[in-house]
Amino acid sequence: MLGLLVMLVVSQAIAHTGASGIVKQRMDAMGVLGDHARIVGDMLKRKTAFDNDAVEMAAQAFIEHGEQIPALFPDTAASRTGSETEALPAIWTEWDDFVALATRFTEDSKALATIASEINTGEQSDEEKSRVVRTAFFRASRSCSGCHERFRLEQE
């Protein structure tokens, strides 16, 4: 648990050093999401042991972030063209689609949270728990690539 917090703090500190203001704010938020996704992913890849608490924390982070997304991308000059930004102009020209993806992500993340809390009290084996989490996590994650595909500048 402590290790997790240290990791989150460190990864925030080293990421996106050239960005500032709203751009830095949303890049940091995305970085936190990535950290949670990695932790759940490592469990599903069986690199680490299944840990339901970590799944619940991840789901909570996803929900909070999903709800924040529209506010993190205001239609201002600093937001559109700030240094280091990877946000594509399509975000603002296709705003409704962008928001719909964020909403879907929030909804799918709520379903993940429900599943995580349900199995927390259940008596399935870790193997079975991992299987239901996998399905719900995959469902939530489709919005990540779905959004990056249209709205993020890809660079190596």
Binding site: L33, G34, D35, H36, A37, R38, I39, G41, F138, S141, R142, C144, S145, C147, H148, E149, R150, F151, R152, E154
Partner: peptide, 11 residues
């Protein structure tokens, strides 16, 4: 699912 080892998702 398009996720890198760091937890980023490809676009």
């Amino acid at each position: 699912i398009g996720m890198t080892p760091e937890g980023d998702f490809t676009g």
